[in-house]
Design a protein around this nucleic acid. Sequence first.
DNA 1: CGTCAAGTTGAAACAGGTCAAATACCGTGG
DNA 2: CCACGGTATTTGACCTGTTTCAACTTGACG
Lengths: 260, 260
Amino acid sequence: MCCHSISVSRPKRVTFWRLSISNPIERKLRQFVIFSDEERRVLDAFSGEGTCTYAAREDIEQEGKRLNDIKVILEGWACRYKLLADGRRQIISFLLPGDVCEFYVDIVHELDHSVAALTPASVARIKSASLNSAMGQHPRLAQAFIWERVVTAAIQREWTINLGQRSAFERVAHLLCELFVRLQGIGLVQNRRCELPLTQADLADATGLSAIHVNRTLQELRRQDLITLGGKELYVSKLNSLEDAAGFNGNYLHIKYIND
Amino acid sequence: MCCHSISVSRPKRVTFWRLSISNPIERKLRQFVIFSDEERRVLDAFSGEGTCTYAAREDIEQEGKRLNDIKVILEGWACRYKLLADGRRQIISFLLPGDVCEFYVDIVHELDHSVAALTPASVARIKSASLNSAMGQHPRLAQAFIWERVVTAAIQREWTINLGQRSAFERVAHLLCELFVRLQGIGLVQNRRCELPLTQADLADATGLSAIHVNRTLQELRRQDLITLGGKELYVSKLNSLEDAAGFNGNYLHIKYIND
DNA sequence: CGTCAAGTTGAAACAGGTCAAATACCGTGG
DNA sequence: CCACGGTATTTGACCTGTTTCAACTTGACG
């Protein structure tokens, strides 16, 4: 099912190399903690427990269905969402590589919302028991995972503010800032450029606007030279300007160490 | 500073009696776990570590200020909020008796938002170390506190949906449903009646509406006989009807056992 | 009984939604 | 490689829920 299977003479070295470059879980968590080699090995083992892949738009978890393992996005984008009775959809948050679908599967047996892949995605399935034992044996890993919970909660609060107080223009700008900074944190921004594999309808459901108004708002952002967006790629030449337009302050992301 | 100080011949008995009736922390957590006498004693000890009181409108925590102990509301209402540069205020959530201001003070050294009392409030200050050791020694307490985190997160997600997708009418109705059910869970609803010590401006800042529109919306809710509200008291004769009007489904509160 | 905050009302303005139609884009199969 | 069909984006015109402003009323409290 998984990946670290190239048989070589110096497995440790290879493992280290792989981890530091390509383990999305570590890539995410090291924004907060710098890991020892031992800790990285433990993190790497998680992906080995089983990986599954999803097509774009496919559900990863469905509201009300039983939860089993802890799922962590390794590759691709996903979102939490909830449908209302009449079909309205709110996207509750975006999940990027390294993000955890649901942490406390021992306590929460079924999710109160759904999670869907937005792009083709690969997802690690971690047994709750192995995560617990890893956290028990490695306090810094435990810290890192708690930090991930803390940041997730802070993001959700910031979305509350975004939807409650900000204008359409600020909202879209703020969301783009957040995604840009989060992607930066996991090393997915290069030359001020990142993938943005969202449709305008997705942005609309995330910002509580209509797709048409998102369209006009994006045009305004382009007109003001704050973003360049097209072909699923976002380019932000002056992040500061975009942040100012959005009223964005990244403190709530609690990033300590920056990747790259 | 605290409360369980009446000296009597059978302290244990008295403690039990006090706890089951009046410890807000237990009152909240037993919506998920039914505690043993021993566990209740541990919970009770928390309030003994120190209590402070706040006037209405006073800040309990301020954005950016250093966090020390874990604060738990014992009495009164509070809210998390954040101010934008131009003075707009978004209320991010309401804190009721038993609710925790910030859990992970070891990791989050300063809050990214503020917390203010809405009524005169009394707050327990718990040392992080004693909470940790209590959770270590009593797995069911640990579970209960994790459940509290899970529900807090779920509420925040539901607010995202409320602000993103629902009309003013649904939003206000939904918020009232949520508060009513949460108050019910901690035994603060009697005869379908509860305190609602919020101004219309507070409701406005929580729902992302203008105070004036909240006013008109409340009138509409009254006109449709869904609520009776006045003198800081809310009466909901048919909770089902209000829930229907709001599109409210209380599953996200993950309540297992009902108080009263 | 006066003062200040909270609630209520009406009228006008506006941000953003809806509807409908046109255009661009993209992967697929011929 | 091109034609095709479906999806995503763009545009314009019109509509409506909500905000804003300004004034008035009520209520709570010293």
